[in-house]
Design a protein around this nucleic acid. Structure first.
Lengths: 161, 161
DNA sequence: TAAACTGATACTATATTGATATCAATTAAG
DNA sequence: CTTAATTGATATCAATATAGTATCAGTTTA
């Protein structure tokens, strides 16, 4: 049972990069290189996110992608929904024969409850939250690139743990 | 995002039938008919459950399947594990490049937490529990067969499309 | 104008899921 | 002691979903 597909995985990590370098456009190429993702595949993922208003793009030289909203406004749940569809029990029991079968119905009830729990959890995990964890974890070094000039990078509330 | 595959779905419902008719052997054919499942496919599912010690079988005329353990001893989580594999984040991040990538690592941590929540929930839902709900719900009519009460338009808030 | 980009889309490959088919072995009943 | 109802064990196929590649046109900046 796979929770996240590649698309969702790539999407999240791409957003984390954009979140780390906010204010400037980041190219698909640089994301693909740094995060080791297949370039064209990633491009498709990025386009999908544009369509859903999560990011914006700029064409041409020096172009790239940028977050369209605050990192805290982007829950992982939404990304799962975009790339893996809404969580559903098994097939389309809903639309079809709802409760045509008693045992199926009982099952459905339980699973819907669990689905709600899951969705709730994934709603709480936002790109913003992940970014903060990331920054807290490795405080001094560049967040996503190893040997980059940490000049004006992510100044964290002075705590150096 | 599909929570249960057909196999798991069929497995659970087959077990519910066995649980409802405990003590006697129930044939794959009758399960397939009553629950509207593809016969041969169901047979494969049943064999898998034998291999995992959940049910036992008897060959020949009057043969069939029977629960091998108490319904309360069979959590849905186990069925998911049997038919869909253990819940995993995205690929085999574990074995491979564990934390080779910082952002992936942070993600993983969050998702493992959620996985635990999910597993916990599915552990609590057992065949026994579902059976009790089933019995409580429709107390008087035949548990797994629908068409027994023909004339009475059993309640049904009409969402059917 | 050329190079570095995104937009859009068509295509291929691989894996997973769902389903069917076949034949041998076993058992109960007549 | 034969026959029909059944499981055991596989082999194969079809459909769908996932992952990845390729291509060409348009935009922007140097």
């Amino acid at each position: 049972m796979k929770v996240l597909t590649k698309k969702t995985d790539y999407a999240i990590r791409a957003l984390l990069m954009l979140g780390a370098k906010k204010g400037s456009y980041v190219s698909a190429k640089s994301i693909a290189l740094e995060q080791d993702m297949p370039y064209q595949f990633l491009r498709g993922v990025l386009q999908e996110m544009i369509r859903h208003g999560l990011i914006v793009s700029k064409e041409g030289v020096q172009g790239g992608f940028m977050l369209a909203k605050a990192p805290d406004e982007i829950p992982v749940r939404q990304l799962i929904e975009i790339f893996q569809g809404t969580v559903q029990v098994s097939e389309c029991m809903f639309r079809k024969q709802i409760c045509a079968n008693r045992s199926r119905c009982v099952l459905r009830h339980e699973i819907m409850r669990i689905e709600e729990v899951v969705n709730n959890e994934f709603e709480k995990v936002t790109i913003g939250k992940l970014l903060r964890t990331l920054r807290a974890e490795d405080n001094m070094r560049s967040v996503l690139k190893d040997g980059e000039a940490p000049d004006s990078q992510t100044r964290q509330t002075g705590v150096m743990s």
